[in-house]
């Protein structure tokens, strides 16, 4: 579903990512770990085409991201959860979800139908539909941001630090839903600082340090890895 091959990026003269390669297969759940400033959000921005890579290629569903541009990714079957949710605050929850639904251009899907599915997954959404997204609590916004990524029924979901700022109780609730998404057969790239939680639901993981992939492997292996234990656990 997602392939990054030797991707290098920079912010002006400052190199950010160096030769980052990673892949997420169909229906696979993969996490990208790393400390603050390692380049996790840069990776997210590169994947969604907002920060063009200097070299290397990024493909989603076989399409080159640079060629497609950020505007076409949703219709390739990707849903995004950007860092900090980034819902449109004065748009209603319904309008936020509608934009994402329209962007996916998934034929055969009915908006009301999908909305009902999202309400089933996130029980609090239904009563908030007419409310401005910016007026909700952080936890509710996190749920709506995830619903926004899912409403077009994508094949791949890319999440950037989705649990940041949530209470421990909400984090576990949140990741239960993420696990359900995985079980539905969607591919997931989970970019996370919280290594233990991420590795507990992902099949594989990559560790990003100073813009480079330091270690990668199956979750069980990574959980025992000394660098990761030293960094996180």
């Amino acid at each position: 579903m997602l392939e990054m091959e030797r991707v290098c990026t920079s912010y002006g003269p400052v190199p950010m990512l160096r030769d980052v390669s990673l892949r997420v297969g169909e229906g696979e759940m993969v996490c990208l770990l790393g400390p603050n400033g390692a380049g996790k959000s840069t990776t997210f921005n590169a994947i969604c085409g907002l920060l063009p890579a200097d070299s290397g290629t990024i493909r989603i569903a076989g399409r080159d991201v640079k060629e497609a541009g950020p505007e076409r990714l949703a219709s390739l079957g990707v849903g995004f959860v950007p860092e900090g949710r980034r819902l449109f605050p004065t748009l209603t929850v319904r309008e936020n979800l509608r934009l994402a639904f329209d962007a996916a251009r998934n034929p055969g899907l009915d908006f009301e139908d999908r909305l009902a599915k999202m309400s089933a997954l996130f029980p609090r959404i239904e009563e908030r539909l007419g409310q401005g997204a910016g007026t909700m609590s952080g936890g509710e916004q996190a749920m709506v941001a995830l619903a926004r990524a899912l409403i077009g029924d994508p094949r791949l979901v890319v999440m950037d630090e989705p649990s940041l700022g949530l209470s421990p109780r909400l984090i576990s609730e949140y990741f239960q839903i993420v696990a359900r998404i995985r079980d539905e057969g969607k591919a997931v790239l989970l970019i996370e600082q919280n290594a233990e939680t991420a590795l507990s639901i992902a099949e594989r993981g990559y560790l990003l340090i100073r813009g480079q992939i330091a270690i990668s492997g199956a979750s069980e292996t990574l959980l025992k890895d000394d660098t990761i234990r030293h960094l996180y656990l």
Partner: peptide, 23 residues
């Protein structure tokens, strides 16, 4: 209107609007 919602979306967050297929 759909176009009005898109205008507001771009006003609020240009980058995320692009991820919502808005040019």
């Amino acid at each position: 209107t759909p176009v009005g919602v898109r205008i507001r979306a771009v006003a609020e967050d240009r980058a995320v609007a692009r991820l919502m297929a808005i040019r």
